[in-house]
Amino acid sequence: MVVIESTSVQPLINAIEKADSPERLIGAVRALAMARSEAGIPVLIKVLGYNNPGAAVVAVNGLVQMGAVAVQPLLVLLDDYNYGARAWAIRALVMIADPRALDVLLSAAMTDFAPSVRRAATKGLGMLQWQLLPEAQVTAAQFRVLEVLLAIAQDSDWSIRYAAVVGLQALATGSMRPEWLSQISATFQQMAETESDLAVQARVYRAIG
């Protein structure tokens, strides 16, 4: 990755702060994202809290393109107050799929008060790149994820159950213990029979294949 000196992105950062319309903001965020500068990471994370979905999408994509180097700042700067910002940050972490986010994703999926945050984290738990963990830790980490996703699959909110199905399906595509795969499959079979929400039920059928 080309690292650009922080001084050279300062005008791009200034442009974001000076943007006086949603369109200009999106354009300025895009310019900073394309610069792929480490110095721009905290600014892109700040944009996630601007309550501008268009700018947030651009910032998330920029952060995801930076990859591993954005993980630590995303974890440290996670916004405890603004759930909108938190949901976007979690989505960025999910797309980067670095298992350093495991604890944050587990806690967000289980206990965040905002459904949008829970959905994003729940989906992402199944998509972590397990090979980035030391081999000795993979089984224990997968087991924690499995337990949490199986519990979340019983949530009262259809959108959380939908996310749990997506997460479990993704988890099952990785290599894991055969008994866990059959546990996931049994959960899907049971949901296919008992699920009352049409959309969730359709998603279960799809996961069963």
Partner: peptide, 20 residues
């Protein structure tokens, strides 16, 4: 250009009609 939750709930309506 709207929040993901609004888009998700909107698409749910499309999916349900397809399923029905």
């Amino acid at each position: 250009a709207a929040e993901n939750s609004f888009k998700l709930f909107s698409l749910k309506g499309l999916l349900e009609r397809q399923v029905r």
